[in-house]
Amino acid sequence: MKNRLRSHVDALATAVSRLTKSPMTFFYPDYEEDKPYGYRGVILYSNEKCIGCSLCAQICPARALKMYRVPGDKRLRPGYDLGRCIFCGLCTDICPTDALELSSVHDKVFDSLESMVMDPVDWTLWSRKVRGEEMARGRKMRVWIDEDKGLRYEEVR
């Protein structure tokens, strides 16, 4: 009986003491976590480097990449289904000319499921847009392990 009462008091005291501490999260769209080296975000495509070998479409385990015939082009070019992508990065590893690359972005919004399926032309344009945004994103935060809270965020200068 005494122990039970004590555990109630302990729980209440813990909650009250937590009320005085500052939150350990950060304001997400204003601040952005500093991504570690090798972070696998969405895959970007550069049209001019691609030789149309279709190795990427062969290795893609989720069949997110598919070769398309583009008007005015002899070779097949990869198209990208972001809805299927599992961000494994195998396509960027196998690409012989580094036409595919990993970005540090993963939070992209689309109007509809259909607009997530991009043909080579769409993908090229979209990749250019994302590259430009990546440069212009908000303040970066680095994460630290904190004894008090667990996690702490600090701005990277």
Binding site: A15, R18, L19, K21, S22, P23, M24, T25, F27, K149, G150
Partner: peptide, 13 residues
């Protein structure tokens, strides 16, 4: 807000 504060979040903002 209080629940968020206890769980070290920010809450509605």
């Amino acid at each position: 807000k209080v629940t968020a504060r206890v769980q070290m979040r920010v809450g509605p903002l």
